[in-house]
């Protein structure tokens, strides 16, 4: 695992990140893929409060990811995003 990989719940608001992979399996992983959250895809973290779902933008769509699921998504932070517009 590369040293700069962390889980989605730990990414600050406004950052852009690349999805590296998922921990665990199940129907939700397929749903993530279908929603465009495939390994390698670029996402922007729009909202990440200290609790509650993380809101990301992927391919122009806002998706709410529950915190428990966010903990199982490994990502790599790339930089600042465009933010709300």
């Amino acid at each position: 695992m590369s040293s700069d990989s962390l889980t989605l719940d730990a990414v600050e608001e406004g950052k852009v990140a690349r999805v590296l992979g998922y921990e665990g399996r199940g129907g939700w992983v397929y749903r993530m893929y279908q929603m465009g959250l495939v390994p390698g895809s670029i996402i922007e973290v729009l909202v990440n409060n200290w609790k509650g779902p993380v809101i990301v933008r992927v391919m122009g769509v806002e998706v709410a990811v529950g915190r428990g699921l966010a903990r199982r998504i490994r990502v790599q932070v790339l930089g600042e995003g465009a933010g709300w517009r």
């Binding site: 939700w28 749903r31 929603m35 779902p53 806002e62 998706v63 709410a64 990811v65 529950g66 699921l69």
Partner: peptide, 9 residues
């Protein structure tokens, strides 16, 4: 635990 995975149009 209850999980959420929801598209927000």
């Amino acid at each position: 635990n209850p999980e959420l995975l929801l598209e927000v149009p």
